[in-house]
Nucleic acid binder design. Sequence first.
DNA 1: CGGATAGGG
Length: 733
Amino acid sequence: MTTFLRPGQQAAAAFGLAFDVDRDASGAAPAAVFNKNERLAISDQRQRLPIYAHRTELLYLVETHATTVVVGETGSGKTTQIPQYLHEAGWTQGDKMIACTQPRRVAAMTVATRVAEEMGCRLGQQVGYSIRFEDVSTPEVTKVRFCTDGVLLREMMSDPLLLKYSVVMVDEAHERSLATDVLLGLLKKIQRRRPDLRVIISSATIEAEKMARFFDTSNVRRPRGHAEVTQEGAAPSRSPALMSVEGRTHNVQIHYLEAAVDNYLQVAVETSVAIHKEDLPGDILIFLTGQDECEAGKLVKLLEEEGRRLQRSRLKWRLQPMALYAGLPAPHQLAAFDAAPRGVRKVVVSTNIAETSVTLEGIVYVIDSCFAKQRCYNPLTGLESLLIAPISKASAQQRAGRAGRVRPGHCLRLCTEADYEEKLPATTVPEMQRSDLAGTVLQLKSLGIDNVMTFEWLAPPPAETMIRALETLHALGALDGDVRLARPIGLQMAELPLDPVLARMLLAAGEMGCTAEALTVVAMLSVQSIWAGGGRREVDEAKARFAVAEGDLVSYLNVWRAWEESKRSKKWAVANHVMHRSLLRAADIRSQLQAHLRRLGFKQASALEGATSFDHDQELDTVRKALAAGMFINAARLTEETQVKLADQSDTGAAIYRLVRSAGGDAAAVKLRIHHSSVLFRCRPAWVCFYAAEQNDTGWYEMRDVLAIESGWLTELAGHVYRMVPLNPQMRR
DNA sequence: CGGATAGGG
């Protein structure tokens, strides 16, 4: 029997499932209905936000403390109001600006738009934003600037002390994105040199104490020569201030399963149907782990079937399931945001894109699988894994909160309360501790931080990861023998807004006279999958039209050329199952990088253009070598083994590869195969390089974006990493 | 036999 609370009711409805009411759920008083104030004048609206009552306190704390940590719950108004308060209080006088960083581009844009409206100015005047490819601000005029944390990091390369700014507010710091963590570490460092700078960190409760402790330097002696007293008077306290602002959300009742289940998809469907049959109106949001679970014949399909069955039973309300994930084409994504028509209950089946990146209105029920795919990095193999893992309690709370935006809601967690308490970690491991840090280390080095091992991190990454990053950068030629930034290569690589492997490819192409081709490949590797979803057969057929034996990277050149020949036509893209959106973004990236290369003094050249078919192979080899000059880091060799045939599965015949580098240890044990999405799947080139390999749930490492190479190129291009060894007769093929 | 999510003057 299910016990399942309805709003304002103790009685339980009978469902076929066993949900246990969490009696400890916070019983906060119901808050005022959000956005009731829509028609009020803007100044009245601003004064009704919870943060308004804390305005004086906040300004006092910022005045007197180098760092202020603000815990502002959803709906408190912190993001839009704090920058305005600071502006009104005079923090933007004397040519100084206020920066407010966001982890996502859309957030920077939308918040800036809202604040410009509140301040009664045109966007890009007093209030602006800056994200990659789009700087909507005016020098000398813009006072409040919203930007992504990545943009502010880039800005530090030309303005290391952020002298343009009097205050930097880091919003959503609890999300602990890689860029946020790096920024926080650098801000702490800057504070030593700039006692006048104020840092405001906005964070959820759970991370607030940690942030405050990190920025507390009250016990640290200032370096000699740095006065404790600034020209304006007493320096601010070096103990951070902490401030909390209540939010405006509704109570969300939490429910757990009474017994663990093994098929949470089935349970999610049954729960949706149960809610639908028995409960009050309100849309449902289901959190699952991936695209395939959300769509491909799984949950949405099951729900559709159930919906039809319900309709036959003459239920007044209709059930309308729809998938939501990042890879979904924009028009389909928008469908999830449309309000359901009368008599229709929306069931949005989503990946964790709906946890932080987008907000859906009208959700009253959240069904949470309590799982998500998580990226991890293994510094010993230098490869990443994408594994399904339990989410953290912090994530689960965030997901639950999605049910309380319009009125009191419910969150049904598809695990037992005991499992929730025992198996879910309190917080998610910060990205900093599960990523490849080669790019981050290079950026820090270029900012003059030579000893990255002693850099003060909010969460120190594993030492092995740092060592691996230094090794990678050294192999790529970005660092010299003393692990110092190599000039000019290291500096040039840091300048390029790219992964170090891709940056090295571009520089090599500059030397080898094929920047045109390398720019195309690098741009296309920088966007998420070029290929459109939909029928796999169609996509495979489309792919086959561009496929060449040299691999995916060279195939991308074919796609690009055909798209260019069609005059960048959208019709062409649709007909060829290529995502037009991705190509347009690749085109943006390509021209940005082209400008960078030009500034670095590289001559633009194409190896293939004008090449006759007679010398084509040779010219193509030049391009492949330039690409391999970065990708040699990830080289793999075909072995004689093939994938073992399993009893209940047909033999896929996938060939097994092994990493070429590091003859011993973990790297040598790694078995790789070519990912199904590669044009080289089923092909067996003896030597390959790959841009990315991921371990999947079955334990296999699968190589994506593969380039076939000649074995001799490794020693030719990276003699400092690879050397010729006599062939072992047993290994040869 | 198949890609969670963000991000870069």
